[in-house]
Computed example of a mutant assay.
Amino acid sequence: MNIEGLQQLAALRALLAVGMIMGLVIGTAAFAVSATDRAVERRGRTRSSRFRSPRHWPPPWARSSPHAGPAWPPPSFSASG
């Protein structure tokens, strides 16, 4: 039996296992950083688009309705009172 060859094989297997584990850890960390960065970036875009989105403008109290009075000015800011 070649003892030196078996020792080299064991060392190679250990290095390969350590490399795979390190790759998994680094890949998981990179995924977590990427997901966090995307969530933070998207939250900022979502917040700013709320003010520009046509779905949110005009505000609900300013939309015309057949059952409501004039849409503008709102009742709390009426000129009469």
Rank of each mutant, 00 (worst) to 15 (best):
H67Y: 11
P73V: 01
P58Q: 05
D37T: 13
Q7V: 14
S80I: 02
P66M: 02
L12V: 13
A35V: 11
H67I: 09
P60F: 08
G5T: 15
P74K: 06
H56I: 03
G23Q: 03
P54Y: 08
G5V: 12
G27Y: 10
P54F: 12
V40F: 09
L24M: 15
F31M: 11
W61F: 06
G23R: 04
P66Y: 06
G5P: 10
P75R: 04
V40E: 07
I21T: 14
P59T: 10
D37Y: 05
R55M: 08
W72V: 14
S64N: 08
P74R: 04
F51T: 00
V18L: 13
L6Q: 11
A68C: 08
A11Q: 15
V25N: 06
D37W: 08
A71D: 06
M20S: 09
E41G: 04
L15Q: 15
W72Y: 06
H56A: 01
R63D: 02
P66R: 06
L16W: 11
A30H: 06
W72R: 14
R43T: 01
E41M: 03
L16I: 12
G5D: 15
I26T: 12
L9C: 07
I26D: 10
A30F: 13
R63M: 00
A68H: 06
A10G: 05
F31Y: 09
T36I: 01
R42G: 08
F31K: 01
D37H: 00
R47Y: 07
L9V: 09
V18T: 13
R38Y: 10
S78R: 13
R63S: 01
L12A: 11
R52M: 01
A68L: 10
R50N: 05
L15N: 15
R43C: 00
G27R: 02
V18A: 14
A17M: 09
V25A: 09
E4K: 00
L12Y: 10
S34Y: 13
L6P: 03
A39Y: 07
A29D: 03
A14R: 11
T36E: 08
F51H: 07
I26L: 12
W72A: 08
G19N: 14
S80M: 04
R50F: 07
R38W: 10
V40M: 04
L15R: 10
A71R: 00
S80T: 09
S48E: 02
G44Y: 03
E4F: 08
R42Y: 12
R13Q: 15
S80L: 02
E41R: 03
T46D: 02
P59D: 10
R38V: 10
S78G: 12
T46S: 02
E4H: 05
L16C: 08
V18G: 04
T36V: 07
G44F: 04
S80W: 14
E4N: 10
A30L: 11
S65H: 07
A14V: 12
A71M: 02
F51L: 05
P66D: 05
T36L: 05
P60L: 11
R47N: 04
S34L: 09
S48G: 04
A71P: 02
P54W: 07
A11W: 14
G69W: 00
R43I: 07
